[in-house]
Design a protein around this nucleic acid. Structure first.
Lengths: 179, 179
DNA sequence: AGCTATTCGTCAATAGTTTTACGATCGGGT
DNA sequence: ACCCGATCGTAAAACTATTGACGAATAGCT
């Protein structure tokens, strides 16, 4: 039955996930407990991680997390049409349009109509944008490194390969994707 | 230099992450490549996974993803004060307040002032809310299982232990958390 | 008991994102 | 050459979540 118990009852992530999985398996027998556990942990870790990176690295620099992600995407892919930047960064076309409206006046990127197809808008970093991104990227990576420091090399490797597989699942036909 | 190359240039997640890491290591030598790779993949996988679960399981049912998360939290923890539900589900107190304003008229949960402390609001699922949540939970877990199906048991286990460690890092002193 | 500082939920304001719709542009078939 | 359908970026509107501030209520100290 498990009624209230308004008392404290451990509020930390790990025990909550454990209790959630146990309770679910108990009430819904044919549950894939391992899958559930992994997905719950994934969400919880990414939630805290994102907030930590944004609040400790990017906000103090005057950037939002999506802004960093957008600039980083252009930095990696080079001058790109807006549509591709959206797909690569995982945001909608409208969000890219809106964000670049903010970033362009800041002198971080340029918007240029594609001469070969006037519908397309080519986005590129300015030298200043590139420089600032590299500084932010460095700070970002240092913070990532602190997080990863808790894992042994073997664990980190295992995490990587598992995530790679999931990333390839993400491209499957049956997965619902934006657009 | 790596200029434009507006041509196609593989848009899938994996190659993008790989190119991003390689490029970064090349331009910023003292980069923790493994940490960067893991964090990038983490974000990308969770992004697609969240969207897939929400759009294929919860939206068709008339629920948003946060609504599911909130109801699930109460389902697991039993009748709880609003503050705890917020902490457990990873949302702000205001968001919980706002969400419950929507969910209560739908007959999914009840709000009751704590008799022993009239500041507190106790949230509990109605029988209907509990029943609907279990249905949604079952569908959700089946979808999770499809994702996890791509991983071998060993890989899934490795993913779990790595995520557990990261979840414990998330509770470290130096990590910036909400509130 | 009385006073003060803290805690809790909610409201208002803000910011960011998605959805929908539209104008501009391009490509292909006739 | 001319349409018709599709594609691209953007603007407007609806929605959601976050922050800060406030009223109600409580706990601790004197």
């Amino acid at each position: 039955m498990a009624d209230s118990d308004t008392g404290d009852a451990a509020l930390d992530s790990l025990s909550v996930v454990s209790r959630a999985v146990e309770l679910t398996v108990e009430r819904i027998p044919d549950t894939d407990a391992d899958a559930m556990r992994a997905v719950l942990l994934l969400h919880r870790v990414v939630n805290v991680l994102s907030y930590d990176l944004e609040s400790s690295v990017h906000r103090p620099r005057g950037w939002s997390w999506p802004a960093f992600r957008l600039l980083f995407t252009i930095w990696v892919s080079g001058k790109q049409e807006s549509k591709n930047v959206a797909a690569l960064s995982g945001m909608s076309r409208a969000a890219v349009s809106s964000l670049t409206n903010t970033l362009e006046p800041m002198g971080l990127l340029t918007r240029e109509v594609d001469p070969t197809d006037k519908r397309k808008m080519l986005l590129a970093l300015t030298p200043q944008g590139s420089a600032e991104l590299e500084t932010a990227l460095k700070a970002n990576n240092q913070r990532e490194s602190m997080w990863a420091g808790a894992l042994s090399p073997a664990e980190l490797g295992g995490l990587g390969t598992a995530l790679e597989k999931l990333a390839s699942v993400a491209q499957s036909e049956w997965v619902n994707k934006r657009d």
